[in-house]
Structures are given as C-alpha cells and as structure tokens.
Nucleic acid binder design. Structure first.
Lengths: 219, 219
DNA sequence: CGAAGAGTTAACCGACCGGTCAACTATAAG
DNA sequence: CTTATAGTTGACCGGTCGGTTAACTCTTCG
C-alpha cells in the first residue's frame, strides 16, 4: 500500500482537541480520562502512550488554548494600527463573540479557559498555576505594547503602563467570570467601555500633556 | 439532670464549617465527603442525616460564606459615612487583608469563594450558578447604594449606576482571580485604585466639593 | 527476510467517589 | 415504664477515578 492515510497519526491531536473541548466546557475534575478517550475515539492505553498523566495533558491543553487565543483574539485585536481604545473594544468584542458562539452550541457560557483552570486548580497544582500565570502575563504584554505605542503617539498621557495593563487583564477576567456566572454573554458588552476608563489617567498628579483626547460620559 | 448540653448538637455546624474551609481552600471536586467528615469529626451517615447531598451542602456553604462576607467585608466597607472612593478603597483593603491572612496560614492565596465556585461549577450545576449569581448581585447592591448616595451628596456626577457597580464587581473578581493566579495578594493592592477609575469621580483624596464641574478639564 | 521501535489494545489495579442502610443510642414526652 | 423521634454508627453499594501492564500490530529499515 502506498501512502494511503489511514486514521493513524492524528491520535495525539485528537486527544488534545477532545481535552480542550471537554475541559473547557466543563472542568478539569469533571472530565475523566475514560470519557476523554471515548470522545477522542482512543483507548486509554494510547492516551498514556502520549501523555504521562492527566495533569501533563492539561498543561499541553493550556499551551494550545493560548495559541488559539492569540490567533483568534489577541492578534486580531492588537496587531493593527487602530487607536488604543479601538483595540480594547475589539478585544472585548471578540470575547463577546466567542462566548456567544459557545453558548449557541451548548447553551452555556464557558468563560475564559485560563481563568477557569486558574480558579479550579491554582491551589492544587503549582505547575498549572504557573502556566496560567504566564499566559495572563503574555496577554498583559499585548496591552502593554499597545499602551506604549499609544503613549509614543501622544494618544494617551504618560502613565504606569504595567499597572494599567494589569488592570485591563483583571477587568477582562472579571467580565468573563460575570458572564459565565450570569450565563449571559451580554455582560461582556455591557462592561466593554469600562475598560477604557482604566486607561486614561495615571496616579494622582502624575499625568500631563493631554492632547486632543475626548472623554466619554455615560448616562 | 438539668439540661446539660453534653456533646452539643453542633454536628451540622461542624460539617458546615469544615466544608467551608476545605472547599474554599481547594475546590468542590477535590474535597470528598469522606475527608469532609473526618475533618469535622463526624461519620458519613451523620452527614447524610443533615444534608441530602454534597451539592446541597455546597449551597448551604455559599449561604454561610455570603453571611460572613457581609459582616467581614461589605458591611465594614460600606456601612459608614465615608465618601464613595474611601468605601471602595476599604473594600479592596479588606479583600487584601483576607487574602493575606489566608496565605499566611496555608501559603496559598485562595481567591474569592464565590468566584471559585462560579468558575468551577457554573456549567455543571444550575442551582449553584444561580446562587453565586445572586450573591454577586447582592454585592453589586452595596456598590449601587453607595453610588446613589454619593450622587445625591454631589460627590460624583450622575451616571449609569447599574453599569458602574457591575464594573466594580467584575473588576474586584478579576483582581482576586489575578491574585490567586499569581499567588500574591499584593496584586489586589496594585489594582486597588483602578477601581476608582471605573466610576466618574475626582482624583483620590479630593473627596469634597467636586459636584458637577466636569465640563472644564483641570491641569 | 528479521529486528526494532512506535503505536494500539483489552484486561486489570487499588483507591476513592457519592450515597445507602439497618441497627443502634440518647433524649424527652406521655 | 413505653414509645416516638432525633441523631449516630459502621458496614456496604455500584461505579468511577487515574494509572499500569503485557501482549499485540503495524511500519520502517537494514
């Protein structure tokens, strides 16, 4: 037989994808290795041929989730020449779209795959905690870079970029937590413009050189 | 013998307290009924005499957690005549103190008991999801009331109080998620003043005579 | 061909899961 | 006393957990 692609080769891939879907939709503890294997069409022995443990699989899942998050959310939102405010809006819009899409499939808002695992496992597994922490720091990096560009362009006043970016990430995590808890993606839309307020000014008395920036006012 | 309470009927109480501690420190799924009973010094049969299931126990735990949160955090922070900004600062300070205290005992930042259960169980148990949602809405109520008072007192300009209070709660949840993920309560302190930016308020400390003169920008 | 390694399979492991149950004891009222 | 009820106890249930093992097939290469 020449190179006739049987079903082989993609076993590890299928396990990874199944784990990504199932753990994201439910939780780490509520998805067993057995179910995982059935979903992937793989026997348990094969699972342990590719992954030393469920925990290691989860770390691999986090890597892939971050890859997907970058290409589906962070790059589209931030790899452009839009003003900072628009980038943040786009980011939240993509969060919203993602949660909506997931809800239309399962009826449930799944929240953030990183926040979910962080709160479930941070106190139980140091390696996973660190991994999630690294992901959140990389996310923060996107915001930080965009802020520095915005400051260089005179878009926003000089300020503590690290603190502000951290606040944005925290706020985004909070938004997705609330959306999941209310099972309503609309929460993210409602909170969207709040993110802009976390940017404008730095610590008291530290900001100057405001150019032509506008200030929006809610009703 | 007069009514001498010997072993005292505190069994249910002990179960509740043990569950509160253990589930908060780890997670719902990672604490078994057996371990729970051992920690409480109770046999499993007694457990099921008082609680029909682990899930119901968890809902009772949520009720108690909210009672404690009110009396330890929300009432102290908001049941006073301080300006809104100070109330919010106090709230975050209490979050910080709580996380610090917990960390000094176990070495781990436990995060928010409500956020934790929300992200772990919202997609698996509708009753628990609703319960946490109700708690978060009550929290939001504290902020909302304080904001309305502040508006009435001319402390801050008129604004969409519901949206702003929701943003504050989301931000607080995000702050505690980040603190847990970094295993560092200091994150909460760093994010503290960001909360002030989520409402239309003057610079921190200038809590007087800042009514509606937002049209003219200062500096 | 034959050897070797990657990948697959089913049976199996002990531990633990949430939950049940019937028998027991302690208490307090009739 | 008897009786009813609340609470306690330890043995037990079927099922699932994460993980292991030894034997097997398939592919590749000498």
């Amino acid at each position: 037989m020449p190179t006739v692609t049987t079903t082989t080769g993609d076993t590890k891939e299928r396990i990874l994808n199944s784990a990504l879907d199932l753990i994201y939709a439910r939780s780490y503890a509520n998805v067993g290795v057995q179910e995982l294997c059935e979903h992937a069409g793989v026997k348990k022995g094969s699972f342990y041929h590719f992954f030393p443990s469920k925990r290691d699989l989860t770390i691999a899942v986090l890597d892939r989730q971050w890859m997907l998050a970058k290409q589906r959310i962070w790059d589209p939102a931030f790899k452009n020449r839009l003003p900072l405010g628009e980038k943040l809006q786009r980011c939240f819009d993509l969060f919203y779209d993602n949660q909506c899409g997931a809800k239309h499939k399962s009826g449930l808002v799944p929240g953030c795959p990183f926040g979910n695992l962080a709160l479930e496992l941070s106190t139980q597994d140091e390696a996973i905690r660190r991994k999630v922490d690294a992901v959140l720091q990389e996310s923060s990096g996107y915001v930080k870079r965009a802020m520095n560009e915005a400051i260089a362009a005179g878009e926003i006043p000089k300020q503590d970029v690290d603190a502000a970016a951290g606040a944005i990430i925290a706020y985004a995590q909070g938004a997705m937590l609330m959306a999941k808890t209310r099972n309503d993606p609309g929460v993210i839309k409602e909170l969207r413009q709040g993110a802009l307020r976390l940017i404008h000014a730095g610590p008291p008395g530290a900001s100057k050189a405001r150019s032509r920036n506008e200030k929006r006012k809610a009703v």
